[in-house]
């Protein structure tokens, strides 16, 4: 009896050691390597998908009127990009070069449809929030761009990191733009009236509105998103001067 317990204990210990060993080597080789961390941090600034690589602009304009949809979209893109990059990276030695675009699009579209269908069945409320973004996610050129430029030539783990990093860099710009557009355009953040309440008359208003402040409705229109992104680029490049273009 005791011998049996000892045996199982020993077996368990060995197993634990093995797991520890595996995770350790994994960490030493990939998680902690400098190159891999760069994969995550680079897209946040030096190689930002929106402001430097010029990818994923359409969605950045369409959904940055408010913070909430911007954040929902960012989360969805993180998921789809990480998954898509891994799948394509696993398939990279099998995909014939001539039909690679179709394969990439089919993988992305299938992933998005699977997610959409599952959400519709189990998390209906979330799916209602996401449903208008489905088309935008499939045609988000960040996803295609990274599949084409990175995942086709690198291993799954690196592609995974690249996907997360680029989606995060994309989300960062989305959130910055949405913050300014919602704040200046409707005086709200996440739907809360942070600048006070605007009544029908000056007397009924509170906060800034009582002083005669007006929302700039222009910020709600899409052209303003372009101009806000332009200003973000201006700010980023005046701090990070190596990004400045010749003309």
């Amino acid at each position: 009896m005791s011998q049996e317990i000892k045996d199982t204990n020993e077996a368990k210990k060995k197993k634990d050691e093995l797991i520890l060993f595996l995770t350790k080597t994994e960490e030493r080789e990939s998680l902690l390597s400098k190159a891999n961390r760069k994969l995550l941090s680079d897209p946040l600034d030096d190689n930002n998908p929106i402001t430097v690589q010029v990818l994923g602009i359409c969605s950045a304009l369409a959904i940055t009127v408010q913070l909430k949809p911007a954040i929902v979209m960012s989360v969805a893109v993180v998921f789809v990009m990480a998954m898509g990059n891994v799948v394509i990276s696993l398939l990279r030695n099998l995909v014939p070069n001539r039909i690679r675009i179709i394969v990439q699009l089919v993988v992305v579209a299938s992933l998005v449809i699977v997610v959409d269908q599952v959400l519709k069945a189990y998390l209906y409320d979330v799916s209602k929030q996401l449903s208008i973004f489905i088309g935008l996610i499939i045609t988000n050129c960040i996803i295609m761009g990274r599949l084409e430029a990175f995942a086709l030539g690198n291993g799954p783990w690196k592609s995974f990191l690249d996907g997360i990093g680029n989606a995060a860099g994309y989300g960062l710009i989305l959130i910055i733009v949405a913050f300014f557009r919602e704040l200046l355009g409707s005086g709200k953040l996440f739907g809360f009236e942070v600048l006070g309440h605007k009544g029908l008359t000056l007397e009924e208003s509170t906060g800034l509105y009582a002083l005669g402040y007006e929302n700039n409705g222009f910020f709600l229109l899409s052209p303003m998103a372009l101009i806000v992104v332009g200003v973000v680029i201006w700010y980023q490049r005046s701090r990070n001067r190596k990004l400045i273009e010749e003309n």
């Binding site: 995909v95 014939p96 039909i99 089919v106 299938s110 699977v114």
Partner: peptide, 22 residues
């Protein structure tokens, strides 16, 4: 990987897999 028959087989398999899954 670039021969026509490979491309053909690959696309058939892909279409079947995707269609069945979806």
């Amino acid at each position: 990987r670039n021969s026509n028959s490979y491309i053909f087989i690959f696309s058939v398999i892909m279409v079947i897999v995707v269609a069945v899954v979806l």
